[in-house]
């Protein structure tokens, strides 16, 4: 009963958050000068036409001279009906451009999430249970390294080492390579390593701290007093309880780190994914595409947060449904 109500509330909150995010982008567009119109007018002026007249015609043709509330309703309807407009910089509908780009992003993004979670938690828990050992110190060192190294610089250094000096790996991504091939794996290796380093380090630090807290707790002592093996204590007791707080950081933190990283990765390795699409859109002042590439990560983040809240229901019997 309480649980159903909780789930309903969380879903409702996700809807509200989505609505607010979309409205926010609309609001931002309204209060700033229209970039597309400026581009069109500037082009027209260059070819001898009147700047202001062209600008006005541009706005009129797109219905941008109408009252704000009308435009708002239109805008929201378009977003809702997936009519996201036409990207002039790509020469195709926005959704088509995104449909082509996401495959490339997913190729390194999904492995990075998996590596962040598995490796991060794994090393974190291991060093928590083996505190003050050389492995633990090495782990801490790697964690500091990971959260501190600027990923763009790290990428450059790795390219310099493995691409230029040792010539082991390609220095940039070739989209002509077959998806399931050794060559593709090789060219994805550096992007995945660079992208996941920071989040692996973050997960390590966090899971280590959590596990240390629980490793000292009374219920773990009870489990040991039962004669449980270290493995059982770790998996059935420490990890199972630590999953609750860890699940919160996985979504919020990992997504944030990876989104920011994806722009950099795609720029450096020249991967034609969503990040590059977004950057190109911004550079060419292609407003519909800028909006789409902004909203998609926001939707993913909202969806991720919703999944995380629902995971809570499954993971933590203590959850107080009234309080969240």
């Amino acid at each position: 009963m309480g649980m159903k109500w909780y789930v309903v509330r969380r879903v409702a909150w996700a809807v509200v958050a989505t609505y607010l995010a979309v409205s926010l982008t609309f609001g931002l567009l309204m209060v700033t000068p229209n970039a597309g119109a400026d581009v069109a007018a500037a082009q027209a002026a260059a070819s001898g036409q009147d700047y202001d007249a062209v600008r006005e015609r541009y706005l009129e043709r797109r219905g941008l001279d109408r009252p704000v509330e009308e435009q708002y309703v239109d805008y929201m309807t378009n977003i809702l009906t997936l009519d996201w407009g036409y990207s002039f910089s790509q020469g195709e509908p926005v959704l088509a451009a995104i449909g082509e780009a996401w495959v490339y992003s997913a190729q390194y993004f999904v492995p990075s999430i998996l590596i962040s979670a598995l490796l991060g938690y794994g090393i974190g828990l291991y060093s928590a249970l083996n505190r003050y050992t050389p492995t633990d110190y090495l782990g801490s060192f790697v964690a500091y390294f990971g959260i501190s190294i600027p990923n763009f610089w790290f990428a450059i250094v790795l390219i310099l080492l493995f691409g230029v000096v040792f010539r082991l790996l390609p220095t940039f991504y070739d989209s002509g390579v077959a998806l399931l091939s050794v060559q593709n794996a090789k060219q994805l290796l550096l992007p995945v390593v660079v992208l996941s380093t920071a989040s692996v380090a973050g997960q390590m630090r966090y899971s280590r701290a959590q596990a240390i807290e629980y490793a000292r707790s009374a219920f773990v002592k009870t489990a040991r007093a039962k004669g449980a093996s270290e493995w059982r204590v770790l998996t059935r007791h420490i990890l199972r309880v630590a999953l609750v707080p860890l699940s919160t950081i996985l979504i919020a933190d990992v997504l944030a780190v990876l989104f920011a990283g994806s722009f950099i990765i795609e720029t450096i390795f020249q991967i034609p994914g969503l990040g590059r699409l977004a950057l190109e859109a911004i550079q060419q002042r292609d407003t519909p595409l800028v909006l789409a590439t902004t909203l998609i990560p926001v939707f993913i983040a909202i969806l991720g947060n919703l999944l995380q809240d629902l995971a809570y229901v499954a993971l933590d019997p203590r959850i107080d449904y009234g309080d969240r």
């Binding site: 995010a21 944030a256 722009f263 911004i282 800028v290 902004t294 926001v298 983040a301 947060n305």
Partner: peptide
């Protein structure tokens, strides 16, 4: 705070820098 945490700051920054 929930809302702000959901919204990826880096992308918001890109959008605002694009606009302003």
């Amino acid at each position: 705070v929930d809302l702000q945490q959901t919204f990826p700051v880096f992308i918001l920054l890109l959008l605002l820098i694009y606009l302003y």
